[in-house]
Design a protein around this nucleic acid. Sequence first.
DNA 1: CATGAATGAGAGTTCATTCAT
DNA 2: GATGAATGAACTCTCATTCAT
Lengths: 200, 200, 200, 200
Amino acid sequence: MGVKERKERQKTEMREAILNAALKLFSDEGYDNVTMRKIADKIEYSVGTIYLYYKDKSEIFFELHNRGFAEFYKKQLSVQHIKDPIERLYAHGEAYVQFAMEYPEYYDVMFISRTPSKELKKNDHWIEGERTYDLLKLNIKQAMEAGHFKGVDLEVAAFSLWSFVHGMASLYVRERLMMMPTEFIKPLIQGALQFLSRAY
Amino acid sequence: MGVKERKERQKTEMREAILNAALKLFSDEGYDNVTMRKIADKIEYSVGTIYLYYKDKSEIFFELHNRGFAEFYKKQLSVQHIKDPIERLYAHGEAYVQFAMEYPEYYDVMFISRTPSKELKKNDHWIEGERTYDLLKLNIKQAMEAGHFKGVDLEVAAFSLWSFVHGMASLYVRERLMMMPTEFIKPLIQGALQFLSRAY
Amino acid sequence: MGVKERKERQKTEMREAILNAALKLFSDEGYDNVTMRKIADKIEYSVGTIYLYYKDKSEIFFELHNRGFAEFYKKQLSVQHIKDPIERLYAHGEAYVQFAMEYPEYYDVMFISRTPSKELKKNDHWIEGERTYDLLKLNIKQAMEAGHFKGVDLEVAAFSLWSFVHGMASLYVRERLMMMPTEFIKPLIQGALQFLSRAY
Amino acid sequence: MGVKERKERQKTEMREAILNAALKLFSDEGYDNVTMRKIADKIEYSVGTIYLYYKDKSEIFFELHNRGFAEFYKKQLSVQHIKDPIERLYAHGEAYVQFAMEYPEYYDVMFISRTPSKELKKNDHWIEGERTYDLLKLNIKQAMEAGHFKGVDLEVAAFSLWSFVHGMASLYVRERLMMMPTEFIKPLIQGALQFLSRAY
DNA sequence: CATGAATGAGAGTTCATTCAT
DNA sequence: GATGAATGAACTCTCATTCAT
């Protein structure tokens, strides 16, 4: 039994290692510029070995995709303890963008990249994303109950807030903020989040 | 004389055809997944022919990039006649998103796609984008002078507005709004633009 | 009649122009690196035009080959007026190497290059070369009659002299003397020719 | 252990096979006319396989180049035991030409072929050639000390001797001696070497 | 389990040559 | 006679994937 477990664990560790290497590379160089060889080099195994753990390149991509959403959801949940709904919304937005900046690779894969193969279209994994969107709506609803968002439709509000943070996140991830000094970006984002809250 | 003109026109048409084919493909499949052969197939010419009109693959990309920005700027300018600064800002945002929805391929190439080859990073062609960003700032400044955006930093305001519309545009272009019925999208965007204006 | 002649002359001039352009290019960049386009650019005509005057690229090559031999023979003849057989041999050798240095392109094509197409093997044009070899032998024979080359076989002498000058010429043409300062090469060659004459 | 060695050996054999195929081809058809596909066909492997053993085409060329010079130098050294400086010079020359006749492909690649890519001009690998030239000079100097080459400059003498043997070698390698019966060539060369020694 | 060797398909690009105008 | 447009075949090189060991 111990043997079986160890093997299981080793297998998991290997898959993990591959995933980490691939994630870093995907994010740095883009899906298409990542070769199986680069991944193999990074984990210091041979190319063939990767195929013992993953069927092909796109399987790695989708595993990452799912991981991303799981991690993302966890991050979102972490602000739910905040009592004040406005503060919570602010923290929620901040967490969103923080996630994108911390794991641009994941964010890219989740919200920007075109999916590599036709088969695994949205339906499959969007459910994951739905959860976090529901969370956002919940938080907005509670803010509404506390007297905010007067006269605003829930769907509109949710869409607005999402668009707003996604806008910042994706400009950052796809390097469209290059003309700004790096150290200005974070304050700018915080300022923007503050600014948005004036509309609540 | 007529001959020369006809040749001129044919040349232009060919360049146009290549550009159109490439634009569609770049946006559908991403720069790296577009091959010169695919473009050639699409226009039903041989591969070599493309090289009679464009130096290489990246030249096609950058031509599209520039075209996009030119068109884009024109669209932005079209709202400048509106007197009321708030109305103008609204129209500005609407024009922005409209452009993305009307020419998703251009929008993709301009604001989402990873650009080919590091060398030609922003410096070269971002200037084009800068113009439209300046326009946005101008409009905000005039709104400020009319008493809006109290206590808001200009840079923060501009970044906020850009992020907001880019968020909507890129969610649309990269098909992350699939879970919503198509006919809801436009009203949603209008609602969102209205919502944002509460913060002014 | 005048018209016919003019046309004839123009045709000749064109062929000449093509040949000159090609010769320069072949010598500078080597047969394979010369494209029809490069030749066309050089004469400021379109690529297609060349095909009105020459069947294909290799025809140009062979025309040059023949020209080379003709020119070469002429150059050799130019020393035949010298009375003293030893002086004449010296001048002969000097003329040989001079030709190679003056028209490295021709020399290359004539004595170094592998011929591009199988059909036109040696037999065809070697006759041209034979003539000049006969000239060399004649000069040696006359030197013998004047008391030189005691105990040396004519064939051996001819082969030696040819090898000697060809050695210098081909090292020069194929750039194997790069490690020597350019200005040293000519004196070196003259010294070498003097040196060889000690064996006469 | 045995496994590792076998693999090592197989790797070496493969590199060797590629080298042999390439050498033959380079010498027969010239660097530019040799394609990776031709090499691959010759060894009956796929094109890609070659790239597992050599970085690119020019690496194959330079490996051959170096091999040639190494072998060549060895051959030159083999006459150094001869005491009499004149005899030694004769043997030296003979060894030179013999090398060219025995390994015409190597000789071609080393002293006749146009080298690929300007960058790697002499500087890099000519050093190898320099060694053998120094050897020649040494032998001449010793002959001088023994009273030969009276009044002859060392550089001139070295250049003369090199040109002489290179002339014979390259006429042979590039098949410019076709008009002579094969069996005459060797005696002719020996006669020529004898003849040259009259100048010492 | 891990590997190194191998490959087929395909990438961007170039070029001699043809041909309608 | 001259051209510009077009092409097919070829080039070097890369890579995801397979498989015997």
